[in-house]
Design a protein around this nucleic acid. Structure first.
Lengths: 209, 209, 209, 209
DNA sequence: TATGAATGAGCCTTCATTCAT
DNA sequence: CATGAATGAAGGCTCATTCAT
């Protein structure tokens, strides 16, 4: 693809370190470039701005992340009333090792995107991800037996769910821990939301009678 | 008590706007003061620093928030094995209207504290709140029938729980919506965590036999 | 004479403390006045400027000091060729207790004038004192048997001499120590300068022959 | 070695002028840089701070000065009881031309270090020099026949001595004048201090008998 | 390709002084 | 007599960006 010179690699590595330590906004381009052993002029030969540098660092992983997070939603979306909950879980759980591998392989990039991107277009990455996915799911909610849950509340819960996955992903966990924790979190949210749905549905039926 | 002059009010109002839009760090004191119609010199007659200005804006609400959040934990802490879950909920739910009133009355301040305070001593307010409260709860986990849940996972879930409460608090909801959503979220987390605990306990018993 | 209100006294006392600690230039008028328990407005009712405040603090002592230093010069000026050095010393030594009393009584003011007055018209007080006194003495140098000493060198020595007296005066010495040290220093300079004069005179006579 | 660009030279020259006129603290970086025909941004490309600028101006000379002043002390330290004072002088006098050369070559730098460095790490340069040297000499005082002189008084005299050398160094004298004046001053202090010591010793012996 | 000199707007903070009340 | 609100200039310093070479 696009060739990356040794200079670029040095700058990218230095930038990763600085963005990780100070965040995008507070990191000093001056120091990034100096730490890489070059001058600002060299930098601007490759990138048009500080933000473009950040982009170069995380664009690929960002796309992978979006795809991978979409898969998780797809797992939830397959949820069907009447099926055994245990079976459904298995479909999601089956994806976990792959997800965990992705996380371990791109952890630093994920941290940049998810927790050090203030001031870039990745700010709010998580929020828009949730937004996209819940919008796609919303039509299915009734089919999933979650019809009684207020859509906005559902969105809040999905934000919490994704947010927790992000915390796990950006934590210091090994692959096995990631799998175990994500599985546990999945259980908590799935069971909890289902319980809420049933309670609301019961309440609505009572109201009608 | 402390008298606040018209000048101070103008500065405070302008500051609230700027902090809300850009966050503490990125907001420009220059522009805050100019927007209020004064010079920097005037500002420093009232406040010793930019941070003190932020403090003046949120100190009171911050104290109220800490107290109110503590009450929520107290509600969870009253959890007893063997009691009916529905009864326990009622204890927590009973506090909700009061909490919602507080939130509605101090919403902008809460937003400043919880989501625009980077660079001030309020940075990490939520995190330290979670930390304090989960530490106090940890010894009770076994008694609450949650012994099987990994403490670190429990902490992740509590972070998600508090985080969701914060999202509700800093949203645009009316009092009734706040109450309804917080109640629903409470149900989800309580039921979900309990289900996880039972599953883990079952797994541990199987291992033993 | 001029009446000094309680307000002025409070301000003066506070000013003395601040000037002593930070020097005239670095002391903050704001803090001086605040420490005194008043506002800047009150201050400017009494004094037209920061410098005038310094002046009010030290004017009286400054005049006393000039007079007293003049007396020391007068002691030297009485020096006559052919008289016994010991006798001459006695004349100077006789003045020492009175001088020491003055120093002990006005020590803080003296410190202000001599070592904390940068930025005021008292800056260079010592230098001008030396200048004045040596100019008056110069015509007498030959009569005193110091004709062989280069006038500029003599001025350097007088600067050192006065400077040492100043160090003694602004030190932490008790009256007796002041007297003892000033007497010793007087001996050193008198003997030393006389020795130099003789050597130079000898050299000049050799040149002539 | 280190290359100095024309820009740096312009800044350094301007800085020297401003520091000389106002002292380090009161000199305005703004004006220094503007006078040199540049902006503050350009300045900070070369120096990290105002103090570093001062340092760049005087560091080299400062080291030379410390060495050269140490040599003077070494001259005094060689003082041996019983030897002829005239011979000892010669040892010191022999160093004078070299010292005078150094002074003439670095006069402006010396002025910066010795009389315009308030607020930098060079503040108190003279004082610490005196302190170091007198401490090294103190043990030898008895051997030098100065046992009767109070050590604190001796320190005062040494301060005066070094201070006078500084005045000569920072004056407008030509090399020959520097040599002549320093030699004369040396004679005054040496003779004077010796006279004081004898008088004190005499007094002590009288007391004993 | 890479340098490095230079910009200019911006940052937060301090200060002596003025003046209407 | 004293307040306290307000000014305005100045302080040292940082930064992303431009551009001739």
């Amino acid at each position: 693809m696009a060739e990356v010179t040794a200079t670029q690699q040095a700058i990218l590595a230095s930038a990763r370190r600085h963005f990780m330590e100070h965040g995008f906004k507070s990191a000093s381009l001056n120091r990034i470039v100096a730490d890489a052993g070059f001058t600002k002029g060299a930098f601007y030969g490759y990138y048009a701005s500080k933000e473009e540098l950040f982009d170069a660092l995380v664009a690929q992983t960002s796309q992978g992340l979006a795809k991978v997070m979409g898969n998780i939603t797809a797992g939830w979306a397959g949820y069907q009333v009447g099926e055994q909950a245990e079976h459904l879980d298995e479909a999601f759980f089956a994806q976990l090792p792959e997800l965990a591998d992705f996380i371990v392989a791109h952890r630093d990039d994920l941290r940049l995107i998810l927790t050090h991107s203030e001031g870039t277009r990745y700010e709010g990455f998580l929020e828009s991800l949730v937004e996209n996915n819940t919008q796609r799911i919303e039509p299915m909610l009734a089919r999933m037996g979650l019809g009684g849950v207020d859509p906005d509340t559902y969105r809040l819960l999905m934000t919490a769910y994704y947010g927790t996955l992000v915390r796990i992903a950006t934590g210091d966990y090994a692959k096995d821990q990631i799998v175990a924790k994500m599985r546990d979190v999945q259980i908590v949210f799935q069971t909890g939301i289902l319980a809420l749905a049933q309670r609301r549905q019961g309440a609505q039926e009572q109201e009608r009678s």
